[in-house]
Simulated assay, not measured.
Amino acid sequence: MAQRKPLERDLSIKEVAEMTGQSADTIGDLVRIGRFPNAYKAGRGSRNSPIRIPEKDVDRYRQTQPRAAG
């Protein structure tokens, strides 16, 4: 039987900030400039919808940013 990959999670800005040791404001700025290319607004995508960042994007970012390797 083939081994299954664990499900990837989509993280909040706050969770990513805690993982990387950066502020939520910094993570929000990084989302806006495209450092997390698969980030999206959850729900209806309205102005106040929470942003979610796929875990694979965070892993990729942490590999390229030694200070964020936390």
Rank of each mutant, 00 (worst) to 15 (best):
Y61L: 04
I33Y: 14
A69F: 13
I51C: 09
I33D: 10
S12L: 09
R62Q: 15
D59L: 15
S12E: 07
R44K: 11
Q65R: 13
T26M: 11
P54G: 05
T26K: 08
Q3Y: 07
G28V: 00
A42G: 03
A24R: 08
I51Y: 11
E15T: 07
S46R: 12
S46N: 15
K5C: 15
L11W: 09
D57E: 08
G43E: 10
D29V: 14
S23T: 13
R44C: 06
I33V: 15
R67I: 12
N48G: 01
K14H: 12
G28L: 06
Y61D: 05
K5W: 10
Q22H: 14
P50Y: 04
G70T: 14
G21P: 07
R32E: 15
Q65P: 09
K56S: 14
D29C: 12
V16F: 02
F36A: 01
Q63I: 13
P37V: 02
G43V: 04
L7C: 13
R62D: 07
E15M: 03
F36M: 02
R52V: 02
L11T: 05
I33P: 08
R60D: 15
R9K: 12
P37D: 06
N48I: 08
D29M: 14
S23I: 03
K56G: 07
A42V: 03
I13L: 09
S46A: 12
I53W: 05
I51E: 06
A39P: 03
R52I: 00
G45A: 05
M19H: 05
R62M: 15
P6W: 00
E15N: 06
D10G: 04
F36I: 01
V16N: 08
D59A: 15
D59W: 12
Q65L: 05
S46M: 11
V58H: 04
T64W: 09
R32S: 15
P50T: 00
I33G: 06
A17D: 01
R4E: 12
R9P: 04
P6K: 12
I27E: 07
P66K: 04
R44I: 09
P50I: 04
R44T: 12
L11M: 10
T20K: 05
I33E: 10
R32F: 07
I53H: 00
K56M: 10
D59C: 10
R35P: 03
Q65M: 11
P54H: 00
D10S: 10
A2L: 14
A17I: 03
E15L: 03
A17G: 06
R4I: 09
Q22E: 13
G21H: 01
I13H: 06
P6F: 03
K14I: 08
I27T: 01
K5I: 10
R9E: 06
G43M: 08
M19A: 11
E8W: 01
T20M: 02
F36E: 00
S23C: 01
P66I: 11
G43F: 01
G45W: 04
